[in-house]
Design a protein around this nucleic acid. Structure first.
Lengths: 129, 129
DNA sequence: CTTGACCTTCCCCTGTACTGGAAGCTTTAG
DNA sequence: CTAAAGCTTCCAGTACAGGGGAAGGTCAAG
C-alpha cells in the first residue's frame, strides 16, 4: 500500500503520515526500489490507535509513549490507566474552570442588559467588563 | 512612571507591556529625553481592562477591537455585548464537548478496571483505548 | 568615575499538530 | 513518448501570548 492509499483508508493525509513517522509515532516505512513508502494493514491498525488516543484527548507525545512501551514488547496497560486517570483529573479541573468562567460571563452579560450605556465613564473603558 | 514600575503595579512584566504596545493594545508610549517610556495611571487603567477582558476569556485581538472603538470616541457597549454573547455560546459548546469527553474517558477507565490485561492482543495495541 | 539597576531594540524560541509549497523523481495510462 | 498523478525531501508558516537573551544606552548613588 502506498502512502496515499493508506492516508485515505485511515481518513487522514499523506502530510500527516509523514509527520507521524517523523515524530516516531509510526516506524520508518519500508521503501520500494523507487523510494516510495510501502505499508501493510498493520500501519492502519496503528493509525487507528492513534486516532482513538486523540479521541480520548491524549497528546501525540502521550500516545507515542504508549506505542513505545508496546514496541518494547511490554503491555502498556498500567501506563494507559495512569494516562486516563490523569486526563480525567485534568478534564474535571477544566470543567470546573469553564463553569466558573461561564458564571462570570453570564453575570457580566446580565449586567450589560440592565446598565445604561450613558453611565459609561472613559476611566474604565467599558462598564461591561 | 517607567515601564518597570508600571509592570509591577499592573502585575505583569516589561516584556509583556512592550508586546502590548507592539500589538496596538497600548498606544505608543511617550518617551523621556533618554528614550525611556513614560506612563501615567491611565495606562494602568487600560492594562487592568485588558486583564478583565482576558479573565472573561477574550483574546487580545478581541480586546484590541474594543479598545479601538473606544479610542475612536465611540462607546463599545454593543460590540462588548456581542463578544460576551459569542463567548457564552462558545463556552457552552466547549462545556458540552468536555462533558462528552469526560463520559467517554470514564467509560474507558471503567473498562480498564474490569478487563484482564491478558486478553490484550497486539493487533489493537491496547485494549483500553 | 564607576558600579549596578534599569532601560532600549533586535531576533529567535516556546508548544501543538499539522499545512503549504517548491523542486525534482517514479509510475501509470494513453 | 508524453502527460498527469503521485511520490520524495526540505524549508517555512499557522495560531496564541508572550519569554529568553544579546548588545548596548541611561540614570542614580557612592
Amino acid at each position: 500500500m502506498r502512502i496515499g492509499e493508506l492516508a485515505e483508508a485511515a481518513g487522514t493525509t499523506t502530510k500527516t503520515l509523514r509527520f507521524y513517522e517523523d515524530q516516531g509515532l509510526l516506524p520508518p516505512a519500508e521503501r520500494t526500489p523507487g523510494g516510495y513508502r510501502g505499508y501493510t494493514t498493520e500501519s492502519l491498525t496503528r493509525i487507528d490507535f492513534i486516532h482513538r488516543g486523540q479521541a480520548a484527548g491524549l497528546s501525540l507525545a502521550q500516545i507515542r509513549q504508549v506505542l513505545d512501551i508496546r514496541d518494547h514488547g511490554q503491555a502498556p496497560c498500567d501506563h494507559v490507566r495512569d494516562l486516563l486517570d490523569a486526563r480525567l483529573t485534568d478534564i474535571d479541573l477544566k470543567l470546573r474552570q469553564l463553569h466558573d468562567l461561564r458564571d462570570t460571563l453570564a453575570g457580566l452579560r446580565d449586567q450589560a442588559e440592565h446598565v445604561e450605556p450613558d453611565t459609561c465613564s472613559s476611566d474604565q473603558v467599558c462598564r461591561y467588563l
